[in-house]
């Protein structure tokens, strides 16, 4: 694991393995999710892996009725909006994610600050397997 590069590609491989992995600067301790190869706080280049517990809270969201082709393929449309949001993790870093198991037709029922837990969304199979990061109410 230590030998993997701190890249978007590795980040996605870890998602496939149901791991939410960030990078931590060895010089200043700053934490980044998705992982970064260069620290944007101190410009350090020595990183180590840090696994997130996958718990956090909702800081912003939107219920999307008009989505891109990939979401339409998943069955979402004007009558069935999906929810995307920004989640702040217990570790202090934030990440964009799909928000699952909430009612996109009823935005008033979705609350900023609500506690969330990670949910890995596997789509496709074999070489086409792609895992998207999701969260659900906890």
């Amino acid at each position: 694991m230590e030998a993997r590069p701190f890249s978007d590609i590795t980040y996605r491989q870890f998602l496939n393995e149901e791991k939410l992995m960030g990078s931590k600067c060895r010089k200043c301790g700053a934490l980044f999710l998705p992982p970064r190869p260069i620290c944007i706080k101190c410009h350090g280049t020595q990183m180590e892996w840090a696994e997130m517990k996958g718990k956090g809270k909702l800081v912003a969201f939107t219920c999307i009725a008009v989505g891109p082709p990939s979401m339409i393929e998943e069955g979402y449309d004007r009558k069935h909006p999906y929810v995307s949001g920004v989640v702040e993790l217990e570790e202090g870093t934030a990440i964009d994610a799909r928000i699952e198991e909430v009612d996109g037709n009823n935005p008033e029922s979705i609350e900023i600050g609500m506690p969330l837990a990670v949910k890995f969304l596997h789509r496709g199979e074999g070489e086409n397997l792609r895992t998207y990061l999701g969260f659900r109410p906890s």
Partner: peptide
């Protein structure tokens, strides 16, 4: 994460 442009400004709004 499924964000569109209106989605980004929607999230900023919430």
């Amino acid at each position: 994460a499924g964000f569109t442009f209106p989605g980004v400004f929607g999230a900023i709004a919430t």
